[in-house]
């Protein structure tokens, strides 16, 4: 298969970026999208130019490191996959593919298609955990959790932190990411003691970092490679209201 690629190139955080066009041919339909970029990169190195930088790691759809905005879709046109699991058979021969980095104010571009997503970690650091230190915990079966709740929590917890929800959202909102973590811990009894302060702190951090507001368009849900559901956002809103109204704890801003 042959493709024309329009790829965003930007030397560093401050440099002005531009689109560059590359032609690539003889690509197997079984080739993954990132492998196609590998092939392109090897040809660029052959020509002594700098290869295209993109984030990637596990290449099996779980680490959340890869993330390209391909033809108007985060992670490309296939559903429920990350970029590394997208295969060229999903494109038509001769197609022009435009590849852009995630675009959001809290995700500055480091180089080419690599963006800095540490903002997501910063939100987690504000309370995306149960404050249990090592040791001194009760037996695993001392806390009973209904299968339904445990499964639901697992679904929320399967977020891989790739940032596709932010990239997809027209407002660059991180609500799906934040709500997945808030939901997971709100569903489990272990997360209850800190629930009220957690949701307030995490939302405050999310706002401070410059993510947009949620307008319930659900683009995040549509593009999430792990199919995290919008009901998580509703649950976070509920948790937030309860925390603001009923709890005496509040965020110091």
């Amino acid at each position: 298969m042959d493709f024309t690629l329009k790829i965003w190139r930007q030397e560093n955080r401050k440099a002005k970026g531009r689109f560059e066009t590359y032609k690539i041919s003889n690509i197997s339909p079984d080739c993954s999208f990132l492998e196609m970029l590998d092939i392109l990169n090897e040809s660029l190195v052959d020509k002594l130019s700098h290869p295209i930088c993109f984030d990637h790691d596990c290449r099996e759809g779980i680490c959340g490191m890869c993330g390209l905005y391909i033809n108007g879709h985060p992670h490309g046109p296939d559903s429920a996959v990350t970029t590394c699991q997208l295969h060229m058979r999903k494109f038509s021969d001769g197609e022009t593919i435009t590849i852009e980095p995630w675009r959001a104010k809290p995700f500055p571009i480091i180089r080419d298609l690599i963006v800095d997503r540490t903002a997501l970690d910063k939100i987690i650091q504000e309370g995306g955990y149960v404050s249990a230190t090592t040791g001194g915990v009760p037996d695993g079966n001392a806390i009973l959790i209904s299968k339904h709740k445990a499964d639901e929590a697992m679904d929320s917890a399967s977020c891989i932190g790739c940032g596709a929800c932010v990239a997809a959202c027209k407002n660059a909102s991180a609500m799906l990411f934040v709500s997945a973590k808030v939901s997971q811990l709100a569903l489990l009894p272990q997360g209850k003691p800190e629930a009220a302060i957690r949701v307030q702190n995490m939302v405050a951090k999310m706002d401070d970092l410059g993510f947009g507001n949620c307008t319930n368009t659900y683009a995040c849900e549509a593009e999430c490679p792990k199919q995290i559901k919008r009901s998580n956002i509703a649950r976070m809103n509920r948790e937030f209201i309860c925390a603001k109204v009923a709890s005496e704890e509040s965020t110091k801003r």
């Binding site: 675009r103 104010k105 027209k170 407002n171 307008t215 659900y218 683009a219």
Partner: peptide
């Protein structure tokens, strides 16, 4: 809120989004 939302993405995408979202929500 809309102004805030626009500011959250200072550089827009070149290709308009093709994500399927509920009719009119956008």
């Amino acid at each position: 809120l809309t102004i805030e939302n626009w500011l959250a993405r200072p550089v827009r995408y070149k290709v308009r989004t093709k994500t399927k979202t509920p009719f009119m929500s956008r």
